[in-house]
Design a binder for these strands. Structure first.
Lengths: 232, 232
DNA sequence: CAGTGGTCTAGACCACAGC
DNA sequence: CTGTGGTCTAGACCACTGC
């Protein structure tokens, strides 16, 4: 396997950074230097540097040069949807409620809407091997194209519901994760008889203009979910 | 403000995708078509397409063309370190223990080492406004350059401790997040008198060859932490 | 002023898809 | 075979930095 030249350049420089030969805020050799070093044209060298910049290894300052970046030690990527997580996958879901309501003030505030606008409520229970493992409640601002067929709602994830009515590319999403004790209602739904912690995940979806279009809160039995994230 | 031409191309195509004019798996106009359309050279067009590809909007298949990608609806980025979270920041930390131990079998398995290798244990308590909010325990495989000064240990985050002894660029990190009830010991450390859920975060750090170099488990009082993530 | 990175061109050759 | 994307070149002009 013969790599293209720009890949060679990328790997050489990555190696120098990983090995400590080049340290954060050190200057990477200038483009012209690298051209001579590799016998490559400037565009080829630049392609390599662009990749390094994109991967977070270096940054460039016009007129000065390219420099090694300090790595982001605390950045993780997490793939989350309410039906699928690392311990168990939801194999069944039960629709508790689909309704159109007028939000109370708290909810209206959350959704940045007014108390006289319609909001869709969807409440579901998720099961794994016949046992209830999560209680899920969603509030969606009504827009055309929203799912109204119950069968669709039962199996859809939150972003899927919203993206039916708008291009998914324009959506901004936020997660909020915390631990909580269940109240009476949740204990009943989730068959909890003694003390058991819940993992609560709130998803908020915003449109292109950062207006909220939906809120989803999922209460997972603590013994049935583990969220996983990783660097890179 | 006049944008470079490749930015214009990027924004035009992004707009077509966001507005739904181009849908997932639709073909983007070919490079030659775009060259003519914008009166640009092929390298300029390609630069634009490269950016779109990098941002996850499109993908290219040699010999066929470029196509609109299905957005990753479930991808989030989370910035986590054990001393800093969305409700409160740790303003004080107390070192409970720094020690060198032989791991038991379970720990040795976790760290993929043997029970006769030295492991550093660090246990800390984190405080916010004088109140204990998290209990933190770390296991590090010993390597040269490890922090041994207590003052350093008290304030360092997990990746910082490890990166003292190796280039941080080569580290792979994993997060595991779940909810749990505190045991007696944790209740004591965290001043918990009635039932309160804990948010538990495990960090695992691996070196370039995917060998574990450290494990860190942090138990947060559920009422004192909320992890935040967001798309893009 | 010389050196740096940022943009851009007008060619070239290649491997691969599909007809 | 034509059209596609992937790699690469050898120039060019620009704006910026630092001496």
């Amino acid at each position: 396997m013969i790599n293209p030249m720009y890949i060679t350049i990328v790997e050489d420089i990555k190696q120098k950074i990983s090995s400590g030969q080049l340290k954060p805020s050190d200057a990477v050799p200038s483009e012209n230097t690298l051209c001579k070093e590799y016998g490559a044209s400037r565009m080829t060298v630049r392609k390599g540097l662009a990749i390094l910049a994109n991967d977070g290894y270096i940054y460039s300052i016009p007129g000065k040069g390219s420099f090694v970046r300090k790595p982001e030690l605390n950045k993780y990527t997490i793939y989350y949807d309410e039906m699928n997580n690392s311990i168990n996958t939801v194999d069944q879901s039960r629709l508790l409620e689909v309704n159109i309501i007028m939000p109370d003030e708290k909810l209206a505030g959350e959704l940045q809407t007014t108390i006289n606008k319609n909001v869709i409520v969807i409440r579901r229970l998720f099961y794994t091997e016949g046992k209830p493992v999560a209680y899920d409640i969603k509030y969606l601002l009504y827009t055309k194209g929203m799912p109204i067929v119950e069968k669709e709602i039962e199996k859809a994830t939150f972003p899927e519901m919203v993206s039916g009515s708008m291009s998914a590319f324009s959506l901004k999403k936020e997660l909020s994760i915390y631990a909580q004790m269940p109240d009476k209602e949740l204990k009943q739904y989730l068959n909890i008889y003694d003390e058991l912690a819940l993992l609560v995940v709130e998803q908020r979806i915003y449109n292109e203009e950062k207006k909220p279009v939906g809120l989803c809160v999922t209460y997972f039995r603590g013994d049935y979910i583990k969220l996983k994230g990783s660097s890179e």
